[in-house]
Amino acid sequence: MTDSDDHEHPPAPGAPASMQIDAQALRGLAHPLRARLLDELTFDGPATATILGRRLGESSGSTSYHLRQLSRYGFIEADPGRSGGRERWWRIRPGGWRMRGHEFLGDPETRTVAETVLGRYYQEREARFREWTASVWRTEQSADVRRWKDAAFDSVTTVRMTPEESREFGRALTDFLRAFAARYQGRTSGSHPDTENVELQTNLFPHLPGGGRPASPEAPDGPRGRDPEEGAPGGS
């Protein structure tokens, strides 16, 4: 990541560099159905307008139109491995994309649409995590939950850094995640039926004075964290 507020989908191995979202592409994300379409293609892989319409309860004409718009702005492309059929198959753009959200929020010309897009992004990200933790509490005896319960975790660690050190840390972490995730790129439910989509959420941000969290002068400096196996929802 080049900025602390970048949001990106990890690129496939050997894929082109991430697309930097500009103001026009940002506006292309504002429609809520397009966000849902991107989620479907991200989590479940290539699909047609008809397949996506059936999953989302939308007409194929509506999904087809919004898929073409997402393609126009560079977020998706035709899947070259499924050409020649009656319907076009779509996939997420190789290389993914990134967004400098703070810049868009600071610009009066893009602030409103950025608030819409980023607000939805954070709400949906939190909702997916909440749904997992709720499923642990509601259906603890479910075979799927029991299988995954000890594999899932959440963790919070704090450490004192300068902004420059934080940027270096963020880049190193992103490089590691990309390299590790590359081992599993290209898998599908058909090729690996014993797998599920796994989502890793990361945030890196400072606790600024007056930011709503009181300072704790009694606490010693240095790394502090919560062991993911000690009280983390879904961790054990």
Rank of each mutant, 00 (worst) to 15 (best):
W97C: 07
R36S: 13
I76V: 15
T48Y: 03
G45L: 04
E131Y: 03
E218I: 05
Y184Q: 10
N203D: 05
R171Y: 04
D221K: 11
T116M: 07
S64L: 07
N203M: 04
A49P: 04
E109L: 09
P46G: 11
D44F: 02
D194C: 02
G101N: 09
R34G: 14
G85E: 12
E218A: 07
T112K: 12
P223W: 04
L67M: 06
P11W: 00
H7C: 05
M161G: 04
T50F: 00
G96A: 08
V198Q: 08
Q201A: 15
G57E: 05
Q69H: 06
Q123P: 04
I76W: 00
F104N: 03
F180G: 00
F205K: 12
T174G: 07
L177K: 13
A49V: 03
R224A: 14
R72I: 06
Q20F: 02
T174P: 00
F205W: 10
K149P: 01
H9T: 14
R178V: 13
S18C: 07
F153M: 11
T195Q: 11
W89P: 02
R128H: 09
E140F: 09
S59P: 00
P16H: 13
R27G: 15
D6V: 01
G210Y: 09
R128W: 01
G210K: 06
T195P: 00
R146I: 03
V145Q: 07
E103T: 15
D227E: 08
R98T: 13
S135L: 04
P214A: 14
P13H: 02
H9F: 07
R160A: 14
R34C: 07
S155G: 05
L41M: 08
A127T: 11
H31I: 10
V117T: 10
S236F: 08
T63Q: 02
S71E: 15
L204R: 10
H66L: 01
G57C: 09
